[in-house]
Nucleic acid binder design. Structure first.
Length: 567
RNA sequence: UCGGGGAUCGUUCAAUGGUAGGACAGCAGAUUCUGAUUCUGCUUAUCAAGGUUCGAAUCCUUGUCCCCGAACCA
């Protein structure tokens, strides 16, 4: 019954068509590169991969596929105070799951280039293109000016290269305190582009690196990134539009170090998703403060969370593809679009099974105690390859509370006093009585009769409604975890000025402990996604045991038409 | 208003001087042993004003609005 690997069928090479593909195409025609196209996805390993990373990853990967090129995962671990090895390893495995493809060993770390980066910095010093700065951080900021005032040259800007070289080597050796010295590029203190006002290349951090070992100086992004790209033979370095202002600096390093066939930085619009927080800092807070069970909590927008909740990798990829790649300003895309692709994928892959979230007992009066009828139910209507399962109808069954109304509105097709519905895969029943709790007036049991002819082709009468049900005797109790949005609708206004917990949705998790499912679910492996007909998709949680089934609701089925009858 | 980027259905992405189109959402209808799926049809957009042109979302001018940038973060 497991369908965990259902998305692992070889997917055809995606046809990527966007303005970045056009740029690459033009570079290829111009013969700009004598090496194959190579793209990369460069996350900082300071948390788990989330849905916000997915677009950047799939764009880079899709481009590489499109041009029959190479794709690298590069863990951008240049700041040992924020990064951890466990995050790096999780990112590699999450990325392989998302891409449904092995990275073929092309997993690299910026920290592996530290020695190379260090040598390049020494070259810049020799060329009098970098100098060791002695101003403290506040002074540097003061000298840098602002949007309206040009910066002033630092008094240390004219330091002879030999002296900078000596100090830089000492920095590496740990002979200076953090904050006391810094290596800066000598570009233009008065540039209108703030990034060009003698950017800092190296700072002192007295902390060993979790991979690279005993270092005292660490390169900054702006310096490490272009050189890492070049070192890996990347040709096209895609990134978010927020880095567009950094492009001149990216090019400056490659030019001054005289690297041949330098990579090109190409920016595209990243996108935000409604009702979703993608800041790793805030996601980390939710984990650390215990608002969720972990990074893989099914409510989390992390890849692991979505996976545990049953989102297929293909659905996430389809979603990213549908977003497209543009140079327009980043926008906000609706979470329901992601859900659409989840439904679209699962509709074709998730076996059908019946389950009742809120059981309501029905006694079938014309079926004697001990008597029962058996039916073969299709696991996927119209697709015999999914097989069938046997469902049994006997005197006591359960239907869902939502499928009965004492006073139904017009066009309500489900069960009501005196009305008939079909039990999915079985007979039509007529509701003959309602048993209420005398104290509360709540409906606690229904009486019904089944129509023996209603399973005979040609003789069966037509009824409008078909509902799911389970036999009382064989029904299996299950813990259903119903997930709504982790955050309330007002979270789109979240700007960090108030605690993230203010935006948590109070109803994000509803646990239904008395839900019942068909015995067919027993033994389903964690990760299996099924569709409860007429309800939604559910994924077997890793916490699930053969004794106690635990299912996470993936997404509900669309029910606009049903809802509309109540309007 | 220092620099950079951008503005097309409610949202998102196309159209690169020649019929403004797709996807999501929405609305109607058909089919249906899932009110699902599937199918059919429909509504809705070029920021504004000028200009060039037989013809402008596209080119030019002016204006308006939005996003990014002043970490020893990435």
């Amino acid at each position: 019954m497991s369908n965990e690997g259902s998305s692992s069928s070889a997917s055809p090479v995606p046809v990527v068509s966007n303005f970045i593909a056009d740029e690459i195409e033009a570079d290829l025609r111009a013969g700009r590169y004598s090496r194959p196209v190579c793209t990369r996805f460069p996350p900082e390993p300071n948390g788990f991969m989330h849905i916000g990373h997915a677009k950047a990853a799939t764009v880079g990967y899709g481009l590489a596929q499109r041009f029959d090129g190479l794709f690298n995962l590069r863990l951008d671990d240049t700041n040992p105070t924020k990064e951890e090895q466990r995050f790096a390893e999780a990112m590699a495995s999450d990325l392989e799951w998302l891409l449904d493809s092995s990275l073929g060993g092309r997993v690299y770390y910026a920290s592996d280039y530290f020695e190379y980066l260090y040598e390049c910095a020494k070259q810049l010093i020799e060329k009098d293109l970098a100098y060791v700065e002695e101003l403290d951080p506040e002074q540097i900021r003061e000298y840098r000016g602002d949007f309206h005032r040009p910066g002033r040259p630092s008094p240390w800007r004219a330091r002879p290269p030999a002296e900078s070289m000596r100090l830089f080597v000492e920095m590496r050796e740990g002979k200076h305190r953090p904050g006391s010295l810094v290596l800066r590029a000598k570009i233009d203190p008065a540039s209108p582009n703030m990034n060009m006002r003698d950017p800092i290349l190296y700072r002192i951090i007295d902390q060993p690196h979790h991979r690279a070992g005993d270092w005292h100086i660490y390169p900054l992004y702006d310096y490490a990134h272009p050189l890492s790209d070049a070192y890996e033979a990347v040709t096209h370095s895609t990134c978010g539009k927020e880095f567009a202002n950094h492009r001149p600096l990216y090019d400056w390093f490659l030019e001054k170090l005289e690297l041949v066939e330098p990579p090109r930085q190409l920016e595209f619009a990243e996108i935000a998703i409604s009702r979703t927080i993608l800041s790793k800092r805030h996601l980390k807070a939710l984990v650390d403060e215990g608002h969720v069970v972990g990074w893989d909590d099914p409510r989390m927008p992390t890849i692991r969370g979505l996976r545990r909740r049953g989102f297929p990798a293909k659905a996430i990829r389809d979603f990213c593809e549908a977003l497209g790649v543009s140079s327009a300003s980043p926008g906000m895309v609706d979470w329901v679009m992601l859900e659409h692709f989840v439904r679209e994928n699962l509709n074709k892959t998730a076996p059908r099974v019946m389950g009742v979230p809120r059981p309501l007992k029905v006694v079938i009066e014309n079926l004697a105690e001990g008597e029962s009828l058996e039916f073969e139910a299709e696991n996927m209507a119209g697709d015999p390859s999914f097989g069938t399962r046997t469902v049994r109808l006997s005197r006591e069954i359960y239907i869902d509370h939502s499928d009965f109304m004492k006073d139904p509105p017009p066009k309500y097709y489900r069960l009501a006093p005196g009305r008939a519905v079909r039990l999915r895969a079985a007979h039509i029943i007529d509701c003959t009585g309602v048993v209420e709790d005398p104290a509360t007036g709540e409906v606690i049991e229904l009486r019904a009769t089944y129509d023996p002819l209603s399973k005979t082709p040609g003789k069966a009468r037509k009824v409008k409604g078909t509902i799911q049900w389970v036999e009382a005797k064989s029904a299996v109790p299950v813990e259903l975890r119903n997930y709504d949005a982790l955050f309330g609708p007002e979270v789109d206004e979240f700007d960090g000025s108030r605690p993230i917990t203010d935006f948590l949705s109070p109803t994000s998790l509803e646990v239904l402990k008395d839900a019942l499912v068909e015995p067919a679910m027993v033994g389903a492996e964690p990760g299996t996604v099924v569709q409860f007909e007429r309800v939604g998709y559910f994924c077997v949680d890793p916490d699930s045991t053969p004794e106690r089934l635990v299912l996470n609701r993936t997404v509900t089925l669309r029910d606009n038409k049903f809802r509309s009858i109540f309007r």
